[in-house]
């Protein structure tokens, strides 16, 4: 298929592994889905210590189930990416281990305390869910199908995160203060989740033109702020003064980009952010430590990773 034809046809769920797609499309889709899959894994990695640290049995169950779901989402997404015929799951996981795989900015920051868990589980997951909902209309059918299942499950994550936030913000004075401090630390990172404004985003144009990406960074950020600023206030969180956020007459928001640390953001995007290297390397060590098991059941591993790539056009 010619790229022009792809652009003409680029509707929701339009292309499947049965289509002979140009390499440009398949590479762009692989990059996008691999990033998404990696983010699920690194999000799970960040949250797993809190399964142990959860302050009740029910919370522990929910945290374990959530981390389990994220790994499940990774499984779905790596398959959707693999089906493009560019990279195998094993290659993607190896790249992630070696620090070459890219993933969401928020999952590069270390997380120390339980009061930080709703920053991820409510705000970051809420932001992710906003984006994922739009991706049910992506042009790569296996990706859209993965999104159906992810969106089905994700509501539990956001609700669980919100429930933890509610509990903390109706708890002791100390809990409220600690939560507010965590919120102030995480808020700029959460805003940066959506990346820089559209005119600075490098991959947006192509991904949008072939129907992979369904909404722009600006539109997603707006929708998120519109929904989650009132929620944060409802639970008694004070929105930090910076970054300055102006509500415009048309109900949308404008974030003062200069108030955000873009040097840090782009350092993170290159996997060079020092405090986050512990997470990348920690997961790498874990992956390497069980290499012997994968070798033992190699027959299986080859079958799973050995999806024949489509002929390059």
């Amino acid at each position: 298929m010619e790229l022009d034809t792809v652009k003409e046809r680029a509707g929701p769920r339009e292309f499947s592994p049965a289509d002979d797609l140009p390499e440009e499309y398949r590479k762009a889709a692989t990059r996008m889905i691999e990033f998404h899959a990696n983010s699920e894994i690194m999000g799970a990695y960040l949250e797993r210590p809190f399964i142990r640290q959860a302050p009740s049995i029910d919370r522990k169950l929910a945290c374990s189930a959530k981390v389990q779901d994220e790994i499940g989402h990774g499984q779905l997404l790596y398959r959707a990416a693999e089906s493009l015929g560019i990279k195998s799951r094993e290659e993607m996981l190896d790249d992630l281990a070696n620090g070459d795989g890219k993933f969401l900015n928020c999952f590069h920051y270390p997380m120390e305390d339980w009061v930080e868990t709703p920053m991820i589980a409510f705000f970051v997951d809420g932001a992710a869910m906003r984006r994922q909902a739009t991706l049910r209309r992506t042009s790569w059918e296996p990706y859209a199908h993965a999104m159906d299942k992810v969106c089905f499950e994700e509501g539990f994550h956001v609700k669980h995160g919100e429930d933890i936030l509610r509990e903390l913000m109706t708890g002791s004075r100390k809990e409220q203060q600690m939560t507010q401090e965590a919120f102030e630390e995480w808020w700029p990172r959460i805003i940066q989740f959506f990346g820089p404004t559209d005119d600075k985003s490098t991959h947006h144009d192509f991904a949008a033109s072939v129907g992979l990406k369904q909404q722009s960074n600006d539109a997603l950020r707006n929708a998120f702020l519109d929904q989650y600023i009132p929620k944060a206030r409802k639970y008694g969180l004070e929105i930090p003064d910076e970054p300055r956020i102006r509500e415009l007459d048309d109900g949308t928001y404008e974030v003062e980009e200069g108030d955000l640390d873009w040097d840090e953001f782009f350092t993170i995007a290159k996997n060079d952010y020092e405090p986050g290297l512990g997470q990348i390397n920690g997961r790498k060590a874990a992956q390497e430590a069980v290499q012997w098991v994968r070798d033992t059941i190699e027959g299986d591993a080859t079958a799973a990773g050995g999806h024949a790539p489509q002929a390059a056009d």
Binding site: L61, G126, F152, F156, K159, E162
Partner: peptide, 30 residues
């Protein structure tokens, strides 16, 4: 009992994002 896996088990207040509501509805049905 694995109710902790379902969005319907949690107490929150205020209007939810539309995609959260959809997910919760799908979960309630399942």
């Amino acid at each position: 009992d694995k109710a902790y896996r379902w969005a319907t088990a949690y107490n929150t207040t205020g209007e939810d994002a539309v995609e959260v509501v959809e997910s919760e509805d799908e979960q309630a049905t399942a």
